Amino acid sequence: MKLMKTAALTAMTWLAIGAAAGSVSAQDKDLKVGAIYMDAQGFYAGVRKGIQTGATDAGRKLEIIETNAQGDVSKESSFIDSLISAGVQAIIVSPVSADGSYRAIQRAHDAGIPVVCYNTCLGEKDMKEFVSAYAVGDPYDFGHKLGDAAADYFIAEKKDAPKIAVLNCEFVEVCVTRRKGFEEALLARVPGAQIVANQEGATLDKAVSVAATMLSSNPDLDAFFGEAGGATLGAARAVKSQGRVGKTVVFGGDMTTEIAQELVDFTVIKAVVDISGQGLGKLALAQAIKSIDGQAPADIKVPYDIDLYNSTESAKGWLEAHSDGIP
């Protein structure tokens, strides 16, 4: 789940032409799909590009109606109602809140519209009842890979009792699960590790401020764990601004161009775990089309790969593969 600074994205519609040849069948029908992003930057810009690419490659006449919910449950709810009125055949959404988003998603379900989650979703009970598919990189595995990378670092540095602060995005459940995976992997190999602070800092500006305060309160802090991209980059900037390079390092989630550049430098950020926004967007759209065609997956959760970047070389590879800056 990925949460960056909010920027407005005007609702718009585009048409990707490429209907399959042959006789008219369920697979030849024109499609109208709604797509809701939680943000306009970073990961969600990647999801949007993935949906656009998937629409072009679908071999169907496909109209996408999209908007940016700006992390606001009420805006998300209002747009879902608009999509229902517009007669979309599926809705793709990364719900802002497991508790606050379910009513609008239930309304879409009750209207006969399949809903596909990506990155975030509802609680297990509501998800099973109201959601057709959930495209997701397992958040526990996400955190576990990063916890293992942190353990590798501390063992190599001969730090058996490192102090770690967490900049979290735990207003969404996936971030709570990311932390659980991180802590369990780290403590299994470095049992003396301590989480000495855990505060919300999902957006870049807030993360910089909160991380700076954490460093002042914990002058012997060894590392930050940034649960999302804004937290990761914010922690790195705070470490540099507070003169803590060489003393405090960062392990974080979600690759962006700036985060990859920091990883290339390798003085502060030591490892990043990432789920491709573009890849997840393509997967979510594919599941929406399958749901429209009556081919929803038997298992609601449809997994997507999680990647670990923990070297200058791997960061350079990411930058080469994402020369347009879209993750």
Rank of each mutant, 00 (worst) to 15 (best):
S82M: 01
K75R: 15
T256Q: 10
T256R: 04
I269L: 12
K158N: 15
K159F: 09
A108L: 11
A286G: 08
G229H: 05
D39G: 08
R103V: 13
A45G: 02
G229N: 11
S74K: 14
A202L: 05
Q89Y: 07
D205Y: 05
G229A: 14
H144A: 14
A288V: 02
K125P: 01
E129W: 00
K180F: 02
D28E: 13
T232Y: 08
E76K: 08
A284F: 00
G18E: 10
A315R: 05
A55F: 02
A90N: 08
C117P: 00
V176W: 00
Y140H: 13
M12E: 04
A211Q: 11
C121L: 05
G325L: 05
G192A: 11
D57E: 15
G87R: 09
D299S: 10
A26P: 07
V176D: 08
K32T: 14
D126T: 08
K282N: 04
A165Q: 05
M12A: 13
L83W: 13
A165S: 11
I105R: 09
K128P: 01
S311A: 07
D141Y: 04
G18C: 08
D152S: 11
I300K: 14
G147K: 02
K180S: 12
N119K: 00
I195M: 15
T120I: 02
K159I: 13
G279E: 13
A86Y: 01
A26N: 13
G325S: 10
V33R: 06
F182E: 02
K159C: 05
E200H: 10
E66R: 09
F43C: 09
L187W: 01
V115S: 02
Q295I: 01
A11H: 11
N68W: 11
S276D: 03
V273F: 05
K247M: 03
A20R: 14
E170I: 10
P162N: 10
P95Q: 10
Y44N: 15
F224C: 06
A7R: 12
V24W: 00
A321P: 03
R107Y: 00
L167A: 07
V33C: 07
T213I: 08
Y37I: 06
S216I: 06
I36Y: 00
A90E: 05
P219H: 01
A19G: 15
G50K: 03
K158G: 08
Q52H: 12
A236K: 09
D141W: 00
A165Y: 09
V116F: 03
R107M: 04
N168S: 15
S97M: 04
